[in-house]
């Protein structure tokens, strides 16, 4: 509990640093005013708009004003949508989280049995098939896999919707698209992690007790092998929340990735700030939960 509180307190400077970096970068890399006004606007008109948006103030002043609003939960309004930036982000968040969780589930369902199987049947034809498949899975670009899945399941057999969000059926193809790449990486990791653990002395002890091989593998070995796997899962979850633009685009999935890229292109500062802030919170949370899971898995890990 104390550890949790400490970790949460430690995230405050991290979040602050992130807002600062994004703030400075956004302001140094382009002027939103030129995109907001028609091309034939006069210099005077531009300057008036700039002044009214507070963009003429020195950067530190702007940043402090931004922080003052941030404390109140106000990221400002989107230039483009004329609505509260945070609302805009939070509106997209459920779609992103839904897809992230579904993709992770797909990845786990594929990788855990395959990883274990290829470890216990190492150097067999099956192992070759699985590790080969993992390379293919990792190498396939998401947009290509997404389009192939749509062609096969939606166009040819008309089993699943082509795109959009709504029912559970809408979730299937994008989740498989994203989950496959992650599953490929996790399968290889589970395999090597299991191989290392299966060679340990305590596995020999477990066998010498007369335990069934399934108990030795699934209980004694797998729990030890999970620790590096949890790390990758946390990193991948963070990536999934941060942006899966290509998959979102292929499936017209209304997630954060699309919103964020659009906002960056349009210099929609408030939206970029709000989105990166929310994403940062989820990245921190997924790392924190990985730390907590380590503790559950391995009693040797103690945090001070």
């Amino acid at each position: 509990m104390k550890y949790l509180l400490k970790s949460l307190l430690k995230t405050i400077p991290v979040l602050l640093l992130i807002t600062m970096i994004v703030f400075v970068l956004m302001r140094l890399t382009g002027d939103p005013v030129s995109l907001m006004l028609p091309e034939n606007a006069t210099a005077e008109e531009r300057d008036t708009l700039r002044e009214s948006l507070g963009l003429n103030d020195p950067l530190p002043v702007q940043y402090l004003a931004f922080l003052g609003d941030l404390v109140k939960g106000d990221f400002g309004d989107s230039f483009r949508y004329n609505m509260d930036a945070l609302d805009l982000v939070l509106e997209r968040l459920p779609a992103t989280l839904e897809l992230a969780i579904a993709s992770m589930i797909v990845a786990v369902i594929i990788s855990v049995p395959l990883g274990i199987l290829s470890a216990i049947k190492r150097n067999s034809v099956l192992d070759l098939f699985i590790t080969g498949g993992a390379v293919v899975g990792k190498a396939m670009p998401n947009f290509w896999l997404g389009i192939m899945l749509i062609l096969f399941f939606s166009v040819t057999f008309q089993l699943l919707p082509v795109s959009g969000r709504g029912t559970l059926a809408h979730l299937v193809l994008p989740a498989i698209t994203l989950g496959t790449g992650i599953a490929a990486e996790m399968t290889r990791l589970i395999r090597s992690s299991m191989l290392e653990i299966l060679g340990q002395d305590f596995i020999r002890t477990a066998r010498s007790k007369g335990l069934r091989e399934t108990v030795v593998v699934n209980q004694h070995a797998f729990r030890n092998a999970l620790i590096p796997v949890v790390t990758i899962m946390a990193l991948q979850t963070a990536t999934l929340v941060g942006g899966t633009l290509i998959t979102e685009t292929v499936f017209a999935w209304p997630g954060l990735g699309q919103l964020l890229v659009q906002a960056v292109n349009l210099r929609d500062m408030a939206v970029v700030q709000a989105a990166t802030f929310i994403i940062a919170i989820f990245v921190i949370l997924s790392n924190l939960s990985a730390d907590l899971i380590y503790r559950l898995l391995d009693p040797r890990i103690k945090y001070e």
């Binding site: 340990q200 002395d201 020999r204 002890t205 477990a206 010498s208 007790k209 030890n224 009693p299």
Partner: peptide, 14 residues
């Protein structure tokens, strides 16, 4: 039944 040389690694750490 059997006991092994390395007591440090012969028991499952978790």
């Amino acid at each position: 039944s059997m006991i092994f040389q390395e007591p440090m690694t012969a028991l499952n750490p978790v």
